[in-house]
């Protein structure tokens, strides 16, 4: 099959994770993975982002598929149930807004910058080497640490379900995927 430019976007996902290890400010670039799928879903009513451009999905397919790091078993039915998918979306968004609130507290001077990456919403990892402390205003760095935490956490969850089930099992409960599908559903209903 003919390869397209977008078949190499897994390089972008891999580079994102690596660069964030050395300089946390690269985390801001991750907003693209947030806004592009939403813009496509809202304007075009399609999940073209999931279908073609998602670097994370490609990375999981590559690791689990071509490199054989997946057991390729069926996902447990509860993980693909609507309750779990919508519940995970709600949980993910709650944590996302808490992260934005922390950023706002730092912006307002109510809290000092925490130079750590929080894994799975609980484990604080030291990450101070990725920020020199003066480059930008504290809230800009706080958002970067928070956003990188979101991206790293979801990557780890994706890798775990890749190992256990199918390579792209993450796609089943990916909050962005669930949200864009909901938008597309609403648009399709409106058009009908």
């Amino acid at each position: 099959m003919k390869k397209h430019w977008y078949d190499y976007l897994w390089l972008f996902s891999a580079a994102y994770l690596i660069l964030g290890f050395f300089n946390i400010l690269f985390a801001w670039v991750g907003l693209l993975c947030f806004f592009i799928p939403l813009i496509i879903a809202i304007t075009k009513g399609s999940k073209a982002y999931c279908n073609h451009y998602c670097g994370r999905g490609q990375l999981l397919a590559l690791l689990g598929g071509r490199l054989g790091l997946s057991r390729k078993r069926d996902i447990p039915p509860f993980l693909r149930s609507k309750q779990f998918r919508y519940g995970f979306l709600a949980f993910f968004f709650t944590m996302f807004f808490l992260m934005l609130f922390t950023t706002w507290l730092v912006f307002a001077g109510q809290r000092s910058l925490s130079e750590a990456v929080t894994l799975l919403w609980t484990i604080k990892l030291p990450w101070h080497w990725a920020y020199n402390g003066t480059a930008v205003r504290p809230w800009v760095a706080q958002f970067a640490f928070g956003f990188y935490s979101v991206m790293l956490t979801s990557t780890i969850l994706g890798l775990i379900t890749m190992l256990l089930y199918k390579p792209r099992s993450w796609c089943v409960y990916c909050p962005m995927g669930t949200m864009t599908q909901l938008i597309c559903q609403a648009k399709a209903k409106k058009a009908a």
Binding site: A61, R80, C184
Partner: peptide
């Protein structure tokens, strides 16, 4: 009703027999 519209099947089909319907 159970499809998440991720597009894995659409991308893997050697015959181009699968279509994504309105992202749903």
């Amino acid at each position: 009703a159970q499809c998440v519209a991720c597009g894995c099947c659409f991308n893997t089909c050697p015959k181009g027999a699968i279509e994504m319907i309105k992202g749903v």
